[in-house]
Amino acid sequence: MGEPVRDASSSESIDQRRRLVDLYDASMPEVYGYLSSRCGSATVAEDLTSETFLAAADAVRRGVVPDLTVAWLIGVARHKLVDHWRRRERDDRLLTAVESQPVPDDDPWEVHLDLLVAHRVLGQLGGHHRSALTLRYLDELPVRRVAECLGRTEGATEVLLVRARKAFRRIYDDLTGDPNPGDPTGGER
């Protein structure tokens, strides 16, 4: 052991580090389950779970963990998920085009979502839309928290959510064979 250059070698830090391993033993399946159910791929879920825990280890060593709990780990996992989708959408040239279009009206949509179809639709969305909808609706975060996770203002996040819902609805209607996609009254006629 060398000189204690930072508090990483203090007994308090060792306690924290041991607690992270304990947390891993107790709760890793929860983090993995969170990621796996959202990204729909075991391989990606494994990668993101690894990233999550290694980032957690780094945070513990730097002494910047506010609260070493499963909830905090899920928060880290959420960021990893968003990062993952963001990486994937870098190649997506459509993004800039979509972003520059005027904000569509957020039409009311009277529909009972078929969850199986809904998850397929999420998988077909661009990363930015998928992130926004996942955080807002699967994770049930308030818009303020979604904005934090995505590094956007609340206003920009609201706009993104409107676009994301629109994009979602377009694909969902396609998949379910709605004869009048985009019709504000949907199947209510």
Partner: peptide
Amino acid sequence: DPFEALGFPPERQEPRARFARDLR
């Protein structure tokens, strides 16, 4: 909001044992 039906709290899911061991 029909999207509210998507709510999905984190659920435990067992990963591959080999993966769990390696990552640990």
